[in-house]
Simulated assay, not measured.
Amino acid sequence: MNGIKALVFDVFGTVVDWRSGIVRAGEELGARNGLDADWADFADRWRGRYVPSMNRVRTGESGWKNLDTLHRESLEELLAEFGLESLSEAEKGWFTKAWHRLDAWPDSVDGLRLLRREHIIAPLSNGNVALLTSMAKRAGLPWDLILSAELVRHYKPDPETYLLMPTLFDLAPEEVMMVAAHPSDLTEAAGHGLRTAYVHRPLEFGPDMEVRWPDGDFDVEVESIIRLADALK
């Protein structure tokens, strides 16, 4: 592990708690507008459109669209399904930006600060630059820089995204560690030569769907980003 010079992080679910933030925003929206909905189900179904919407871009079915745009398109579909089409354009815009206002997991900020002492740290997310910057400022995430799929117009798991940090900083892929709570993300990163760290987030999908430890073969497996900092000392 002494050869690791930079760490790049999946963000949604790994560094921030997306589900609680979206549920909270839905509840606030409903209270303001007198709307009754199962906001937990709404959040899960919104997230469920995440990969299919990006795959339409990756396969060329759609031209390039950043994640804010994809989130807004998915929101329009869900509002129709839930019978909530009465929302104003301003409210739709506010709800879409709920993805900018997510809270960090309790260990994230302190863990990132510890890692930043010896390593370059950055998100490596499908989120667009504006989204990741807004999120970082609100949640206090101490990134050294923002790396986004938007910079190369390729969504993960395209190799152009995983190789952003090695390319920009003239590093060998094995000098960069991908950190994620999602085994598939780490497996793809390892396929392009990056080292891997799995962070267990058992409550990413809520208390009724606890995530189990994976069977993957990763360089590090930890329960928090603080534990990751300990492992890399």
Rank of each mutant, 00 (worst) to 15 (best):
A189T: 14
A98L: 11
S134A: 12
H182G: 06
E85G: 03
G140Y: 07
D185Y: 08
M177C: 15
H182I: 10
D68K: 06
L79I: 06
L87A: 00
E81P: 01
A90R: 13
A189I: 14
S184A: 15
M177L: 15
R153W: 04
L87V: 00
R195K: 15
W99A: 02
P106A: 11
A130V: 00
H192T: 03
D107T: 05
L132P: 01
E77F: 08
S125Q: 07
V152D: 07
D110Q: 14
R195H: 08
I121P: 03
L115G: 11
S62T: 09
I121T: 05
E188P: 03
S88Q: 02
N66H: 07
L163M: 13
G127S: 10
E174R: 15
R153F: 02
A190T: 01
E174P: 01
L147Y: 12
R101H: 09
A80R: 09
F82V: 06
L70A: 05
V179I: 14
E91W: 02
A104Q: 11
K97T: 09
T133R: 10
H192G: 01
D107C: 07
P173H: 08
A98E: 09
H71C: 06
D107Q: 07
G140E: 13
E81K: 03
T161D: 15
W94P: 04
V109N: 04
V176W: 12
T96E: 11
N66F: 01
L132C: 02
V179Q: 11
T96V: 14
P166H: 00
L131D: 03
T161M: 15
K92F: 02
M165E: 11
A139Y: 10
D158H: 11
A190E: 04
L84Q: 04
Y162W: 04
K97V: 00
A189P: 14
L84E: 01
P142A: 10
I146Q: 00
L186R: 11
E175G: 04
E73S: 09
P159Q: 03
A139G: 09
H154E: 15
E150C: 04
N126D: 14
R113Y: 10
A122L: 14
A136P: 05
H119A: 13
D110A: 15
A180G: 09
R101M: 04
S62Y: 14
A90Y: 03
G63E: 08
R117T: 05
R116C: 03
H100W: 12
Y155G: 01
S148V: 00
T96G: 08
L112V: 09
E61Q: 15
L87S: 02
W99P: 02
N66Y: 01
S74E: 08
E150Y: 03
L115K: 14
A122F: 10
G127I: 08
E73W: 07
L87W: 01
G193P: 10
H100S: 13
L171W: 10
M165C: 15
F95M: 13
P159N: 02
S62R: 15
M165H: 10
R117Y: 11
R113D: 09
A90P: 00
L112Q: 08
H100A: 09
H154C: 13
W94H: 07
D185K: 10
E77N: 01
N128C: 09
L79M: 05
T167W: 08
K65Y: 05
A139S: 13
K97Y: 03
E118W: 14
A130T: 00
A180Y: 08
L124V: 08
M177G: 05
R116L: 07
